[in-house]
Amino acid sequence: MNISHNQSLQAIAEYNLVEPSEQDARAALQRVFGAADGESRWLQACAESGLRSGLVRPGDELERAASALGLQGGATAAVARSILIRMRTFYRIASRLNNTSARASS
């Protein structure tokens, strides 16, 4: 998956969207699997993607962690897909709105 990131935009008011974060991913896992099991799956994903839990940055690093979560299979893969869809939506709409405002100001 190739998600185009825009580091400068952290929220899109028109769509009531904020840039997906590590905290969002961990909360999603805990909602489905419970606190301890959800955290265990997150730690495993971080270890397998060479990232440190608590220090995963939005964008490329979160995408790597979510992709590693997807490889755990089962319901974890479904949660991972949710995270990736939310990321893809945020960056796609951010890109479209940026292009619109660039055209308007040129």
Partner: peptide, 15 residues
């Protein structure tokens, strides 16, 4: 109608 989906509702997203 112009659009139709077979949607899969995940925990935090629609696929």
């Amino acid at each position: 109608l112009p659009v139709s989906l077979i949607s899969v509702v995940l925990d935090e997203a629609l696929h």
